[in-house]
Write a protein that binds this DNA or RNA. Structure first.
Length: 275
DNA sequence: ATGCTACCCTGGCAGC
DNA sequence: TGCTGCCAGGGTAGCA
């Protein structure tokens, strides 16, 4: 499940592989993955060069230049999406929905069995305008948000803390795994309401630590996730609570509990995490 | 504005 | 063995 660390790993791989490469065309094999722009709009990538690869939350942004014109490609991996840079002769994976042909004979392939992933493209407009048209949430980046801003984001909000962490309009990039892992590290119950400022500061530190550790590990590979060169991450081996329902807490041996919040499983240690 | 639920979609797995 | 039914969840539409 690609969350911020997985997307960051993919972005770093794409940057290494694609910067300066020329795109000769794109084949949208399954238009259902398009978010808003019709398939015809993607014809514009022909002859463009990759100028930058970046990330906003879980959204991957590829800046393309063609002459004086710029194009902005958005890719979202959804639940099971993969972006692979391969030689064009590489074996064909099932559920390959889009293929970008590179002039040097390689291909960027978008593969997504569950088809929750999305592609979009815009051609112009100011940065905020582009981000809006690409559907990028307005939330803060968890790795750069200042302590006071982090506290301000959550202080006057209602609802369980876990739900707030999943709200991409507040903080973008956290998903179910890293929300649970961050709450465990901060010692906070996912059901906690109206959390105090000192506890929120602790949560910010925990989020940063968990995300950075996961990025160093190349992300968590649970089912489909792989980096753009096909390698798997190993942070799943370090999960403290996610996916460990009924197993002993690694800190205190109390069985890990699973409840449902925001329509998702929330995993936590009832002894180590307090409200 | 905000917070909630239903929906999309397929592979993997438990249970019979 | 083979079938059925359920579960996983990111983002968004639609609702109160």
């Amino acid at each position: 499940m690609p969350e911020l660390p997985e997307v960051e790993t993919v972005v770093r791989g794409l940057r290494r592989a694609l910067l300066g490469a020329t795109i000769d065309g794109v084949d949208i094999r399954h238009p259902g993955i398009l978010r808003s722009a019709p398939a015809a709009n993607f014809l514009a990538v022909e002859g463009s060069r990759v100028r930058n690869v970046d990330r906003a939350g879980r959204f991957i942004l590829v800046d393309l230049a063609r002459g004086a014109a710029t194009l902005h490609l958005m890719l979202h991996l959804g639940m099971t999406g993969q972006l692979l840079v391969v030689e064009e002769a590489a074996p064909w994976a099932k559920h390959t929905h889009a293929v970008f042909q590179l002039r040097d004979g390689r291909q960027l392939r978008f593969i997504d069995p569950r088809r929750f992933g999305r592609l979009d493209i815009v051609t112009e407009g100011s940065l905020p305008e582009r981000l809006r048209r690409l559907g990028i949430p307005r939330g803060q980046e968890p790795l750069t948000v200042a302590p006071d801003d982090f506290v301000a984001l959550f202080r006057k909000r209602k609802g369980p803390l876990k739900n707030l962490l999943l709200n991409q309009a507040l903080l973008r990039g956290l998903g179910n795994i890293y929300a649970d892992e961050s709450l465990f590290r901060a010692g906070l119950d996912p059901r906690a309401h109206h959390v105090s400022a000192p506890r929120l500061r602790r949560l910010r530190t925990a989020v940063r630590h968990v995300l950075r550790s996961a990025i160093r590990a190349g992300g968590s590979s649970i089912s489909d996730y792989v980096a753009s060169d096909g390698t798997r991450g190993w942070f799943q081996l370090r999960h403290q609570v996610y996916g460990r329902t009924g197993l002993p807490c690694r800190r205190c041996r109390t069985p890990v509990r699973r409840i449902v919040l925001a329509g998702r499983s929330a995993h936590f240690c009832p002894s180590c995490q307090s409200r």
